[in-house]
Amino acid sequence: MKHLTEEQLNDLADDAIPARVGPEHERHIAECLTCRAEIARIRSLAKRIGALPLSIQPPAETWPMISARIRNSAPIPDQERSVLSRRPPAWSWLAAAAVLLVVVSSAVTTLVVRRPDVEVPATVASRPATDNDRNLAALSSREEGFRNTADELWAAVNARRDQLSPETIATVERSIKLIDAAILEAREALASDPNNAVIADMLAARYERKVDLLKRATELLPQS
């Protein structure tokens, strides 16, 4: 007779009740070494799984990030909230990125040295969009400026990443990941609502954060 199905073997191994196993299957198991071995192998795996730790300590930075987020549990103005109310809470990414910025900037206080060779264009790290440039064309040219500056700064950091502590590099990379996710989110929101000035402002602000973060990171590099 045929071997038992995968479901029957797993149900038997699990001691599950609805194993769909009739007397003919029981006879088969009694005689078939293959099926019995298969059940034993599934059980042996289950034993290993059962021994896995149910608790693993999270990284130390996790609580400070939560603490900062719950302390500022309403960081966005109502207007912005209504824009994003149908969407996942993008601000939570930003809040987390803001915390990381604080972490990085507190390290900056020990070494506040502007790097002369990483000049940031004054137009880039400027202000939120005004009424005049709240349209896609203007935004896209600003976006390009932000992107170029960010790329340039990142190249500067990346070229000398071994001169920064692994913690700092990890913090910067994680912050960038968070901010990039927030940028992506705002760009998607803007794509479905291109004339929304609030979202355009948010997008610009997120780019500014990214540039700001990278600027701080370059300031952490030792002077050569």
Partner: peptide, 23 residues
Amino acid sequence: AGRVYALCLRLSGDTGRASELTQ
């Protein structure tokens, strides 16, 4: 936190993601 982080770690398969999820 340990219980939540272990769950998030195994569901996401990524330590950075697990920390974010725990948050």
